Computed example of a mutant assay.
Amino acid sequence: MTSSLTDIAKRAGVSVKTVSGALHGGSARMSVETRQRIKEIAEELGYVTNLAARSMRQGWMPLIGVVADDLITSPFATEIIRGLDGAARASDMAVFAMTLSGRRDVASVLEEVRRFRPRAIAYAAMYHKTVSLPEEFADAVGVMINCREANDRVTSLVPDEVGAAQEITGYLIDAGRRNIVFINLPGLLAGELREAGFRRAMTEAGLDSGCARVLPAVRRGVYSDRAPSLVLSHVTELMGGPNPPDAILCGNDRVAMEVYAALRRVGAEIPDDVAVASFDNQVDIASRLDPPLTTMALPHRAMGRQAAGILLSGDPSPGEVRKLPFQLVERASV
């Protein structure tokens, strides 16, 4: 025979409301010890939540839905889901994601997510960008992760691109590098903000920001892994010219990998001749390069954890944009 909340309440000597709060992530206030004791009794009695009945009572299932804007295709951006899932499980919630791609529009995916009656919905993007939500769905999304809502109607968690670029550029300058070239990501918001931080750091160090060289990593107007690369030609020209750089800052770790290969082709040593630094900390690239790459780690997992807190608090601050700091990962390339 299946046990009930009443059975657990009798055994624990508490009210049914307290049991429900302990097991279902409700707002009932209780000590950690009481919550844990109730969970142990429920497990001992073999209690199984009737999700259908609970959904009818509360109007939602113990789920957080995620509209994944190409997120699942990124090997390192999945840290967002890991952070979100870990924090959600601590509140006895589960996370599910539905992918938004070129063949499915935002409205249709949001409608599909809502069919599962989740407690809350997040929108997560593979890379930092601005997203326009349909007017009728703006209130349905509780938080934007790694992106910003175009009309600032939804709380947004984004990486502090400007701050990260200032920090890594300052790190290169503190290491004695003065002639720094930035091979950046054209057409992307992250690239635009990182260039601003790079130029600011150069100016603050007394180096002429107007002369700081910023070059596009690809031939097309918008960066992508498939666009024709300009890295080899840039590095060949820079190192063969009258004013070769003593450091190259790269728009991401993939660009850095190309810079390594190009520097080797022209006979330059890293870091003795040229220091190399980057953004993203895509570990399968950065840690395996020779020498291992100094880079700025994106705050993906932290964004996921904070998003869960916002969604489960039930009281987000509409339109607030929170910038999360990167973490400098020092390796041997500087």
Rank of each mutant, 00 (worst) to 15 (best):
T2W: 08
S3N: 01
S4K: 14
T6M: 10
I8L: 09
K10S: 15
R11V: 15
G13K: 05
V14F: 04
S15D: 07
V19Q: 09
G21N: 08
G21E: 02
G21R: 06
L23V: 04
H24W: 08
G26M: 06
R35F: 06
I38P: 12
I38E: 11
K39N: 02
A42Q: 00
G46Y: 01
L51R: 13
L51A: 06
A53S: 10
R54F: 01
Q58Y: 06
Q58A: 11
G59L: 10
P62M: 04
G65A: 10
D69S: 09
D70T: 10
S74V: 07
T78F: 01
T78R: 01
T78W: 09
L84P: 05
G86S: 04
A90Q: 11
A90I: 09
M93P: 04
A94P: 02
A97V: 13
L100Y: 09
S101K: 03
S101D: 15
G102C: 07
V109R: 08
R114V: 00
R114P: 05
R115L: 12
F116I: 03
R119D: 00
I121D: 12
I121C: 11
A122F: 01
A124R: 02
H128I: 04
K129G: 01
T130E: 14
L133C: 06
L133F: 11
E136V: 03
C147L: 10
R153V: 03
P159M: 02
D160W: 05
E161I: 06
E161C: 04
V162I: 14
G163W: 03
A165E: 00
I168P: 08
I168N: 09
G170T: 07
Y171Q: 05
D174P: 00
A175P: 00
R178P: 14
P186I: 08
L189N: 08
R199V: 09
M202F: 02
S209N: 11
G210D: 15
G210L: 14
A212I: 13
R220V: 03
S224H: 11
R226I: 14
R226C: 10
S233H: 11
S233Q: 13
H234M: 02
G241I: 08
P242G: 10
N243L: 10
P244N: 08
P245G: 06
I248Q: 08
C250L: 13
A256C: 06
M257Q: 14
M257A: 14
V259C: 12
Y260R: 09
Y260K: 01
R264Q: 04
R265T: 12
R265K: 14
V266N: 05
A268H: 13
A268L: 12
P271N: 08
D273K: 02
D273Q: 02
A275F: 14
A277N: 04
A277K: 05
S278D: 03
D280Q: 12
N281Y: 15
Q282R: 14
D284A: 07
S287T: 15
S287V: 15
L289S: 09
L289N: 00
L289P: 05
P291E: 05
P291T: 04
T295C: 02
M296Y: 00
A297K: 14
L298G: 11
P299K: 04
R301A: 13
A302Q: 15
R305Q: 15
Q306R: 01
G309H: 01
G309M: 02
S313Q: 03
D315S: 15
G319T: 00
G319Q: 02
L324E: 05
P325Y: 12
Q327V: 13
E330R: 14
E330L: 11
E330V: 15
R331Y: 06
R331T: 06
A332N: 07
S333H: 00
V334P: 08
